[in-house]
Design a protein around this nucleic acid. Sequence first.
DNA 1: TACTATACGGAGGATCCCTCCGTTTGTCAA
DNA 2: TTGACAAACGGAGGGATCCTCCGTATAGTA
Lengths: 199, 199
Amino acid sequence: MATNVEATPEATALLPRRPLRADARQNYDKLIAAAREVFAEEGTAASLEEIARRAQVGIATLYRRFPTRQDLLEATYLEEVEAISSSAADFDGLAPWDALVGWLRRYVAFAATKRVLAEELLAYVDRDSEMFKTCSGAITAAGEPLLRRAQDAGVVRPDTSFSDVVRMVSGIAAIRATEPEQIERILDVALDGLRYQPS
Amino acid sequence: MATNVEATPEATALLPRRPLRADARQNYDKLIAAAREVFAEEGTAASLEEIARRAQVGIATLYRRFPTRQDLLEATYLEEVEAISSSAADFDGLAPWDALVGWLRRYVAFAATKRVLAEELLAYVDRDSEMFKTCSGAITAAGEPLLRRAQDAGVVRPDTSFSDVVRMVSGIAAIRATEPEQIERILDVALDGLRYQPS
DNA sequence: TACTATACGGAGGATCCCTCCGTTTGTCAA
DNA sequence: TTGACAAACGGAGGGATCCTCCGTATAGTA
């Protein structure tokens, strides 16, 4: 995950934060990492003490940094968005098709936890709040170039927008499948649809 | 709510249950009523002890009847479906338009809690399970005649299906509005759309 | 090195989950 | 009506979680 230095060059400023003491910053990162794991495993109703335990941090440390469950949820969500956005750069070296698909596959894993976090956040935050707008903007800025590159190279049909693709993948990621391989199969088919050239 | 007699004439058999002792049946009804209230107020993560308290029943009584939180959730959901279905008969005496709109307004209140219950149930029950199929069938059987009657009377445009109307209303009911009056206003506009006669 | 703001951890009271078990009560047959 | 029993009830209580308070430790600075 993105380390928590306050002046990262490519920082999208999703998480504006004052400088923390070194130990505090480490604990912050450990808490977010643990929260992402536990929320993914047990849903948003997961025990905060379990998160603190897994982060090997006292429960009070968790509450000091995140006074509310919402605060922890929101920070985890923003870290996820930041991670999926900045991960687009990891695929720069690959061929256009492989780069796009590689990122989208990563997006599936991201979308699964993102959806449940977002659902919970929406109970307290407005859907078209500054936060959600910034997030969707960051994701578009990260992924749209991958799509355009693939389209310019002729390996993806030109009549699809980034929004189309992301929503298609999000929809597939949200399928309640009994076996996880099913998601894989469906995703494969759908991605093949992107290569199809309409006559 | 529908009282819990085991041989109600119009019973849709959504809730097959063996005959209960009189006191047990009363407590069952009190628990469902309390559960509906509390789930609506606090979400599906609400405290079961709070539900037992509000129903003025011992906590063990709740657990005996509903060994699992899922069981209580499911029973509450089914009661809601049964209530909204059988309530269609309440509007038989009204004019076609008033009958349809009256039922749909009741549906909005229903949909708000239904959605959150269904969301939680889907974590454990398959989307196209017998239960969900039966429920959507019951709602269609209840509401579709109201729509058809209004269409036959010429007060609702003929080019809309029951599914269209229900999903429109469900969508409006799911809006995360800050003020509840907003839902009312939007619903009014949308329902006026039903009267509009395309040329 | 010494000082202080910052951060840490855990005890502890309140609440919730769920089970066990002794007590009460509805139902039915005599 | 009455007596007997299956059915149902309620609450205590162990374990887990929530959240706060407060004494202790340490990073950063002069």
